[in-house]
Amino acid sequence: MAIQQPILEARDLTKRYALGETIVDALRGVSLTVQPGEFVALMGSSGSGKSTLLHLLGGLDRPTTGDVILGGETISDLDDDAATRLRRDRTGFVFQFFNLIPLLDAAENVGLPLTIAGQDPRRGEAAERVRDVFELVDLGGKQHHRPDQLSAGEQQRVAIARALVNRPAIVLADEPTGNLDFTTGGEILEALWRSCAQRGQTIVLVTHDAKAAAYADRVEVIQDGLIRDEIVLGRRADHTTTALIARLAQLGL
């Protein structure tokens, strides 16, 4: 893999917040680079700080100290409006719980970032993009189903399509399979994988599940607000977990 300009760079991030009376250091100095087209997994147990890191990377939250640089632009000191525009145009999010707007149908949900940006997702190039991502997540024909008419897996794939629709620089997925059974979780991961493998989509995935992490090119292990280890798996199509689990076991995880 040739040396490229990283698409995403985190430099010495710390995040401290107050939980009632106690001060919590969620991140204690995390640095990370992601190359274009990379699929990176952040692994760790509950409370390790992996979700906090994802929020900082996507501009949902601001670090206490440190910088996040997306596509050459420092985003960690942007004001709320600028951070919002950045999210709208450059990032896509997938959350654990099926984050669809129940009143909108699948196509409308997918078109949401376009709608927010003032485009009509039913017309022209925008409509083309919506159709395209529907194909990618294998949901062709379900455009006009409402969220309550879709299965849990289908709902999450709609959420992935929404994250992909404005061709973001990076897709950030926070435990997208956490709420799903084994098989359905697999469909989700396949969809993410396809976008990475076929479209060169950069993805950062947060998970505590080795099966999900096995889809990644590289796994960053987070513990107590620090990156404990890096496991490079390389690009593979078999997604076997054996090697990963062996490494994790060595780390005592």
């Binding site: 949902l60 709320d80 919002t84 999210r87 709208r88 927010i116 940006a117």
Partner: peptide, 16 residues
């Protein structure tokens, strides 16, 4: 609250 959170995450500004 959740929906608004998603809208904000998907790029809706506070003003919007």
């Amino acid at each position: 609250v959740r929906e608004i959170g998603i809208l904000r995450a998907a790029g809706m500004t506070r003003r919007q």
